[in-house]
Design a protein around this nucleic acid. Structure first.
Length: 593
RNA sequence: GCUCCUGUAGUUCAAUGGAUAGAAUAGAGGUUUCCUAAACCUUUGAUCAGGGUUCGAUUCCCUGCGGGAGUACCA
């Protein structure tokens, strides 16, 4: 049991003994004491003064003296207004480091393998254009939330639902047939997804021209959009696709194949992957049985025109169409079906969807309807809704070409990493391959940290004119700190056995140990909040505290052997904690750089 | 129009209702006989406005103003 758990327990008991206040120890809120005050953990006693009918100072003093009496690890306490600051004995922190020395998994929980899987859906790209910065945020969040839940002991399955069909794909296909001159990734040397994306833009360009011409001939814009020859033909193609037309299907498979090859390359560079990939072409007809079930249960109704709807006005939402009047399914129909499919495929109890906040409404509805259909796991459906990545001049729009391309950005980051590394010129001892690998992990460390340190729910801004930083509160800062610590540990060698007695604990050392100590709690809180940002900020705090300690504390030159051993042990614990937290973010830490 | 999200240093981001609102970057100044200076130490600088709840509000509620998104028998 950690000291904070024990403290909460004792405080809970004390409140009951002294004042008859009944509070569960889990509800006792201890916070880290602010730097400017003496102590380690603080209890705010204001909430209890009314029932205790004493002044805040009196209450705090009474609780403090009782707790100190009971807990030998509490070396003292002080009271400032209603704040009771507990001081933890150095021995506790020293012992803590000694206990965790040589535990590479410190802070990580492991799945027992008995609990029902958690399915995390992320990425979910369309196959008509390459991935951009918005997709990068999605992929990084999805991957890292999966890692985070796993670090908290969950059995995680990562899935991807690829949108490989629909009118947008037909647009690319049509434009390629019309304007492509038989171009292939091989003939052009272009990445497949980029080639297909090029024709998606091409379609839009010609389509707009056609609309313009029709409008000039006197047609109103709405009709022109519908009747432009290219659009008519794209619709025809979609129909032929749905009828299973061999020619269209062959082209569809060929071009999708190009896109998948391109995506795989990008996924691999990003270091993300999946346990299972679903394709909408195989799932878009699912969910119709569920709609029938809903009709039978009386939770849906059939409108006069034949469309099946669900009335959500009682929940403050609108009428939602679940089957078109012609009997075909919509997005929601399919998502109902895939939810059930996933539950069946994995025996999943929790379904997590990493999808942008533009779809908040959709997922609110999905969850409600699953509930109405009587699925007990409906309330375990969680939409991890993340904010948009905005550019200085607004939102990214693929068709208008105002996007930051994923592959380009990664390449650019690698070039910057290389330039900066050469400038520092310290990695000369590394071989060419090692250097290349280092540039890659530094580039991705900077990119991933930049994105993941931001609260997922918030919109964030990316300014292409300013490159992503490698200094300050960044991934490379943490990577550098890790490499430096590993260097110390390498030079120190094995060392002798650690005897905690007689070791001293400096103020900065103490800061480091305390942050280290809070790792398990941080991970469980971050997992509960689905927030890799909390992990990123933790890692930064730890690295920063370590650097500050490292700056003016001798480690290898310490003359007292036992003290030196303790400091090396601390280094080793910090390195492990950094490595583990970075692993949650999907950031690799180098042994040297 | 209606619904949802959001407003913190010049800029990008933090802060379970708690003490004097933190970092980074940019600006000013300093630190290498030393275990890796991608580091460390000083310093300038912010809660959109107005009400309310509370012992206490950046946080919760209301109003206004600003920014974003959704409002399809698209996905």
């Amino acid at each position: 049991m950690t000291i904070t758990d024990r403290l909460s327990q004792v405080i809970s008991q004390t409140l009951s003994d002294l004042y008859g206040i009944d509070i569960q120890s889990a509800d006792i809120q201890l916070q880290d004491t602010r730097r400017d005050f003496k102590g380690d953990y603080t209890l705010v006693v204001f909430p209890y003064v009314k029932q205790a009918r004493k002044s805040p100072e009196a209450v705090a003093n009474e609780i403090g003296s009782r707790v100190k009496e009971i807990m030998p690890d509490v070396s003292g306490y002080n009271v400032i207004k209603g704040f009771l600051n507990f001081e933890v004995a150095d021995e506790y922190w020293l012992r803590f480091v000694a206990d965790n020395l040589g535990n590479p998994d410190f802070g990580m929980a492991h799945a027992r393998g008995t609990e029902a899987p958690v399915v995390v859906e992320y990425s979910s790209p369309n196959t008509n254009k390459p991935l951009h910065l918005g997709h990068i945020r999605n992929n990084l969040l999805g991957w890292s939330v999966s890692q985070l839940l796993a670090a908290n002991g969950a059995n995680v399955k990562k899935v991807n639902l690829v949108n490989d069909r629909g009118i947008h794909i037909c647009k690319s296909m049509l434009a390629w047939l019309r304007f492509g001159n038989g171009e292939t990734p091989e003939s052009t040397g272009m990445k497949g997804d980029h080639l297909v994306g090029k024709y998606y833009v091409e379609f839009d360009k010609h389509y707009k021209d056609e609309i313009k011409q029709l409008v000039e001939k006197g047609m109103d814009e709405e009709s022109a959009k519908k009747e432009a020859p290219l659009m008519v033909e794209a619709q025809k193609m979609l129909k032929r696709w749905e009828e299973g037309d061999a020619e269209v299907r062959a082209l569809w498979e060929k071009m999708n194949g190009w896109v998948y090859a391109g995506f795989d390359e990008t996924y691999s560079r990003l270091g993300v992957g999946f346990d299972k990939i679903y394709y909408e072409s195989q799932t878009y007809l699912l969910g119709k049985e569920l709609v029938q079930k809903g009709l039978d249960m009386g939770v849906f109704y059939r409108r006069d025109d034949g469309a099946v709807c669900c009335d959500l006005t009682a929940d403050g939402l609108d009428q939602k169409v679940l089957l078109r009047s012609d009997g075909t399914s919509v997005y929601m129909t399919q998502d109902l079906g895939t939810a059930q499919l996933r539950h069946n495929d994995f025996g999943a109890e929790r379904l997590i969807y990493v999808v942008g906040n533009e779809q908040d409404y959709h997922f609110k509805v999905l969850k409600l309807i699953l509930g109405k259909l009587g699925f007990p796991w409906a309330d375990k459906v969680y939409h991890l809704s993340y904010g948009m990545v905005e550019l200085p001049n607004g939102k990214m729009k693929s068709r208008e070409g105002t996007v930051v391309d994923a592959d380009d950005l990664i390449t650019e980051m690698e070039q910057t990493a290389e330039a900066m590394s050469r400038e520092h010129g310290k990695n000369d001892e590394l071989g060419a391959d090692e250097q290349k690998h280092l540039y890659h992990i530094l580039a991705l460390g900077a990119l991933k940290y930049f994105i993941l340190k931001v609260d997922p729910t918030k919109n964030m801004l990316f300014n292409p004119a300013e490159s992503i930083d490698f200094n300050g509160n960044t991934g490379p800062f943490i990577q550098y700190t890790h490499a430096r610590i590993r260097s110390i540990v390498r030079k120190a060698g094995q060392g002798s056995a650690l005897a905690v007695e007689g070791c001293r604990l400096g103020d900065k050392e103490r800061d480091v140990v305390k942050i280290l100590h809070s790792l398990p709690e941080t991970i469980s809180q971050a997992a509960a909040a689905f927030s890799p940002a909390m992990v990123a900020n933790y890692a930064y705090e730890l690295a920063k505290a370590f650097n500050s300690f490292y700056q003016d504390t001798p480690i290898l030159r310490e003359s007292d052997e036992n003290q030196k051993t303790f400091r090396i042990a601390l280094c080793s614990c910090v390195a492990n904690a950094l490595k583990n937290t970075m692993n949650i973010l999907g950031i690799e830490v180098p042994e040297r750089m």
